[in-house]
Write a protein that binds this DNA or RNA. Structure first.
Length: 610
RNA sequence: GGCGGUGUAGCUCAGUUGGUUAGAGCGCGGGACUCAUAAGCCCGAGGUCGUAGGUUCAAUCCCUACCGCCGCUACCA
C-alpha cells in the first residue's frame, strides 16, 4: 500500500486508496439540473439525462464535498397556456398539478435535491427581473422590432411551426411555417397561402411587434472564449455549440403573452402593451435564483455565494443534448453581460464549469412521444420495477455519449442477470451462511491474510479510487461496470473458498472467508450507493447497521407556500474503505434485497399501461 | 433543403490520439459444483468494426462519395 502526504497544511498520512480529497478543505460542488418543463409526468428519457446529477451529488457528498443540488419546474410559456386551456383549468392550477407530479417522480427516483423549486416562485421572478433590468441599463438588452405571427381571433403569438397553410411551391395543404414536408422547401410563415394556426385553425395575422433583444453579437467573444477554453465540455456539446456561435445575433427575450414573468417596473413598453420575459431567458437564471431561494429558506441569505463566486466551487450542469446551447451560449452570455455591470454588494457570477450532456433515450427506435403514446414514464417504471432497477439500467445502458434505446426487456435482463444474480445473490448467500453457521453474528476474525483474502480486499479498497475518478470524469457507466467487475471477483472467490464446507470447524477457514466477504460487501455497498441508494440502504440495514447512508429527498413548502423538494443529506456514507459491520447481528437473517422479475408479468403490466 | 449525430459480435453498448490475435455485459452451446433468488463458477462458439474508393509502410479509427437510421432547423429547452 502506498502512503503519501497530501498537500494541505496538515500534511498527515493518508492512504492512497481511500481517496485523499476528503482530507482537503471541503470544496463546494454545484450540481445544477436542467429544469424540466412542467407539462406532465417525466418519461424515462428525462430520467436518463438527469439521473447522473444525483449520482455525482451523492458521490461528492460522500467524499466530503459541500454539495448544492438545485433545480425546479419550468412553468411559463405557451405550451402550458394551451394545455391548461384544453383541460379547462387555470394555467396556474395546471402547472401546480404537473409540477407536483414531477416532484413525485423525482422523490420516487431518489433525486437528492437540496432545493427543487419553481420558475413561478416570486423569488425567481425578482432575480430574473433584476438581471433583465441590469442588462437593459448596461445596453446588452435593447428594444427592437420583429415581425410576429398571431392568431387573428385569440391574438396568441405563434411559433413558425404552429403556422399552417398551403405550400406556395407544390400546393400541398398543411405545410408548416418553417418548411413544407412534401417538397421540403424552406418557408417563411408569410409565404404560406391561407395561413392559419395549427392549434385553433384561425387565420394568422402578421404584424410588427416591439420586443427586448439580448444582443448576443456583443458577447460573442466572451462566449467563444468560454466554449473554447472549457476542457470539460464533452466533444459533442462543443461541436454543437461551435457551429452555432458563428451566427450569433440579437434574440428577442420577451413575448406577448399573459403567462410569464412581467417586465420589471420602469421597463414596460411605452405604448402600454404587455410583455413577459421569454422562458429561455428566465429559466436558465433559475440555477442562480434557486440557489438564492435555498439560502434564504435556510436562514442564511448569503450562503448561495459560495457556489457562485469564481474559484470557490466547481459547478456541474446536467441536461439532455438538446439543451446544450442554452448552457454553452445563452447562460454564459447572460452571466458575461451581468458581470459587465456589477453593483455594490453583488458578486461576479461564475460561469458553468462542466456541461454534462447526455444523448437521447429512444424508444422503439424513435424518440419518446407522449402524444403518440410512444412513451415509458418514470412513475410507471418505478411502480413496476422499483427505483433502483430503473437507475441501474439507465446508468449502465443509458445514453451517456450517444443516443441509446430503451427496452423494458433489456431492463429486466440487466436487473435479473447482473444486479440480482451477481450482487443480490452474493448478499443472499453470505447472509445465509452467517445466519446458519454463526447465529447471525457477522464474523470478525482477526488477521485474515491469506493471499486470496488480501487480493479480494485490496481489490475493493482500490476500487474507490478507480470509481471516483470515473464518476468525476463523467463516465458513470464505466464506473458502475468497474464495481460489477469487482463483485465478480467475490463470486469467484466464494466458489474457490467454499465457506459452506467446513461448518463443523469453529474459528476455521469459513470464519476468515465470511469475515472477508462481509468487509467486501460493506464496501461494495458503499460503492454502489450513489447508483442504487435505496438498495444500498437495505443491504446496510440487513447487516445490522442503523445509520442512514442514502438520505432521500422530501417535499416541504418554500417561503411562498409552494411545494418544493429538499432534504438533509448530512448523514451520507464515507467514500473510503471501512470495516464497521464486523460483529453486528444481522437484522433479518438471510437477506433477499432484489426480488426476481418475471419477464412476462412485467411486460404485461407495462403494456397495459401504454 | 441546411446543420449535426450515428452505423463495431444475436441484443445493448465500449474502444482504437492509425500499428501485433477488436472488447464488455447480456443472450447462446458445453462442463463441474450446490452455500445461494435454477442464482454463482469454469470452458467455448460468434464480428471481412455500413458500402466503395483515397491517403499511409500500416485504417475499424484520417479524407471523399454513397447507402441506412436518428435528431435539430430558433420564438414547445
Amino acid at each position: 500500500m502506498i502512503f503519501y502526504y497530501n498537500n494541505n497544511e496538515r500534511g498527515h498520512l493518508i492512504e492512497n486508496n481511500t481517496s485523499s480529497q476528503r482530507e482537503q478543505v471541503a470544496r463546494k460542488i454545484g450540481v445544477f439540473v436542467a429544469w424540466p418543463y412542467s407539462s406532465g409526468p417525466r418519461h424515462v428519457g428525462h430520467g436518463a439525462a438527469l439521473l447522473p446529477a444525483d449520482v455525482v451529488a451523492r458521490y461528492e457528498r460522500s467524499r466530503g464535498s459541500d454539495v448544492l443540488m438545485v433545480s425546479g419546474t419550468d412553468e411559463y410559456g405557451t405550451p402550458n397556456l394551451i394545455a391548461a386551456e384544453k383541460k379547462g383549468m387555470s394555467t396556474k392550477d395546471f402547472v401546480d398539478m404537473t409540477s407536483a407530479i414531477i416532484r413525485k417522480d423525482f422523490i420516487d427516483l431518489g433525486m437528492s435535491f437540496d432545493w427543487f423549486t419553481h420558475t413561478t416562485s416570486p423569488n425567481h421572478a425578482e432575480v430574473a427581473q433584476n438581471i433583465f433590468a441590469n442588462l437593459v441599463d448596461s445596453g446588452y438588452v435593447t428594444l427592437g422590432t420583429m415581425n410576429g405571427s398571431f392568431d387573428s381571433i385569440t391574438s396568441q403569438a405563434l411559433p413558425d411551426r404552429y403556422v399552417e397553410g398551403t405550400c406556395p411551391r407544390c400546393g400541398t395543404e398543411g405545410a408548416r411555417g418553417d418548411q413544407c414536408d412534401n417538397c421540403t422547401s424552406l418557408l417563411d410563415p408569410t409565404d404560406l397561402i391561407d395561413p392559419h394556426s395549427s392549434l385553433t385553425k384561425n387565420p394568422v395575422e402578421f404584424r410588427p411587434t416591439q420586443h427586448y433583444f439580448l444582443n448576443l453579437d456583443l458577447l460573442k467573444n466572451e462566449v467563444e472564449e468560454f466554449i473554447e477554453q472549457n476542457p470539460n465540455l464533452r466533444t459533442e456539446a462543443k461541436k454543437l455549440s461551435s457551429s452555432l456561435i458563428s451566427e450569433l445575433r440579437p434574440r428577442a427575450i420577451t413575448r406577448e403573452l399573459s403567462w410569464g414573468i412581467p417586465l420589471p417596473k420602469g421597463y414596460e413598453l411605452e405604448n402600454g402593451e404587455n410583455r413577459v420575459l421569454y422562458v429561455w431567458f428566465e429559466a436558465v437564471i433559475g440555477y442562480l435564483s434557486a440557489s438564492i431561494e435555498w439560502a434564504k429558506n435556510k436562514g442564511n441569505p448569503e450562503a448561495w455565494k459560495d457556489w457562485w463566486t469564481e474559484n470557490k466551487s466547481k459547478n456541474y450542469y446536467f441536461m439532455g443534448k438538446d439543451n446544450v446551447p442554452f448552457h454553452t451560449i445563452i447562460w454564459p452570455a447572460i452571466i458575461a453581460a451581468k458581470n459587465h455591470n456589477v453593483r455594490d454588494g453583488e458578486v461576479i457570477l461564475k460561469k458553468p464549469d462542466i456541461i454534462a450532456s447526455s444523448g437521447n433515450l429512444n424508444f422503439g427506435g424513435s424518440k419518446f412521444s407522449s402524444s403518440r403514446g410512444n412513451v415509458a414514464y418514470i412513475k410507471d417504471m418505478i411502480k413496476i420495477v422499483g427505483p433502483d432497477a430503473l437507475r441501474y439500467y439507465l446508468i449502465s445502458s443509458g445514453p451517456e455519449n450517444r443516443d441509446s434505446n430503451f427496452a423494458v426487456e433489456d431492463l429486466i435482463l440487466k436487473y435479473n442477470n447482473e444486479l440480482l444474480a451477481k450482487w443480490g445473490n452474493l448478499v443472499s448467500r453470505v447472509t445465509n451462511l452467517i445466519e446458519r453457521d454463526f447465529n447471525g453474528i457477522v464474523p470478525s476474525k482477526e488477521n485474515i491474510n491469506s493471499v486470496s483474502d488480501q487480493d479480494l480486499l485490496n481489490h475493493v479498497a482500490t476500487t474507490y479510487k478507480t470509481v471516483g475518478e470515473l464518476i468525476e470524469s463523467g463516465k458513470l457507466s464505466a464506473a458502475l461496470r468497474e464495481v460489477m467487475d469487482c463483485i465478480a471477483h467475490a463470486n469467484k472467490y466464494i466458489v474457490e473458498e467454499k465457506p459452506w464446507e467446513d461448518t463443523s470447524i469453529k474459528n476455521g477457514r469459513s470464519e476468515e472467508v465470511l469475515t472477508a466477504l462481509s468487509i467486501f460487501i460493506e464496501n461494495i455497498n458503499k460503492l454502489l450507493c450513489p447508483f442504487i441508494p435505496h438498495a444500498s440502504q437495505k443491504v446496510s440495514n440487513a447487516f445490522g447497521q442503523k445509520d442512514i447512508i442514502s438520505p432521500m429527498p422530501i417535499e416541504i413548502k418554500n417561503q411562498y407556500g409552494q411545494g418544493v423538494l429538499s432534504g438533509d443529506y448530512s448523514q451520507s456514507l464515507d467514500w473510503k474503505y471501512t470495516k464497521n459491520w464486523l460483529g453486528n447481528k444481522l437484522s433479518g437473517g438471510k437477506a433477499v434485497i432484489f426480488p426476481k422479475f418475471k419477464n412476462e408479468e412485467i411486460l404485461k403490466v407495462f403494456n397495459d399501461l401504454l
